[in-house]
Amino acid sequence: MTTAPAALRTRSLLAGFGSTAVLQAIDLTIPERQITAFIGPSGCGKSTLLRCFNRMNDHLAGFFRNGEVLVHGRDAYDPSFPLEELRSQVGMVFQKPNPFPQSIARNVSFGPRMAGVRDPAVLAELVEASLRRAQLWDEVKDRLHASAFELSGGQQQRLCIARALASGPQILLLDEPASALDPIATAKLEETILELSREVTIVLVTHNLQQAARVAHRTAFLYLGKLIEEGETAAMFAAPRERLTEEYLTGRFG
């Protein structure tokens, strides 16, 4: 099926909140350095599954989980795997841009500073490199110390990507990163994501099927907490194996 080694992997993963199971028996392998898109109707559990990879669910009330989540072969929920280390390996960007009320530079250097980097020269280097990778450098290099709130929505979202990249993750989780952006900003963001996928594994949750078709190498379709179908995007969009997938792709529900 796939030749690249697995970056993320779940084994009969079951998760939910309180007494309701949200995800049921998810077995999924996500290959390295590719873009994998999660699609599916609202409430089907895409975000919950995504948050299992960096354990952001742990902070939500009533969350429970069963089954394995492997990050580069290592159990993410192993008590000896420090949360901070997991999160510096698995970065995340949220649906709405959420820069800190601080300067652009301080936003980007947040992760390294939390990890204990103090040297201003090292931090400055990291800031520049991360902003370049997020394709934001040219737009902000003259105002690194201005408030992050002065940026446009699309720039803020790329700032959030730069911020996540600064910690040096091999995996980046993006939860509907373009849903608050206009078409031009979206195109720019997609370009950035595609560029990044050469070195980083990207998991992208999206409601926009065209976006999945445009950028994702692989796509996973979730429905009511179950993984219905997973495969190469082009193949899946051309000839879905499951009837549910076909109905969703042709817009009969969702």
């Binding site: 952001m56 901070e84 949220f94 911020r163």
Partner: peptide, 17 residues
């Protein structure tokens, strides 16, 4: 905004940080 807390946690900060 909780999103700010979420952002810092996702960047590897401890809750105290």
């Amino acid at each position: 905004p909780p999103s700010l807390v979420a952002a810092s946690l996702a960047l590897g900060a401890t809750p105290w940080e």
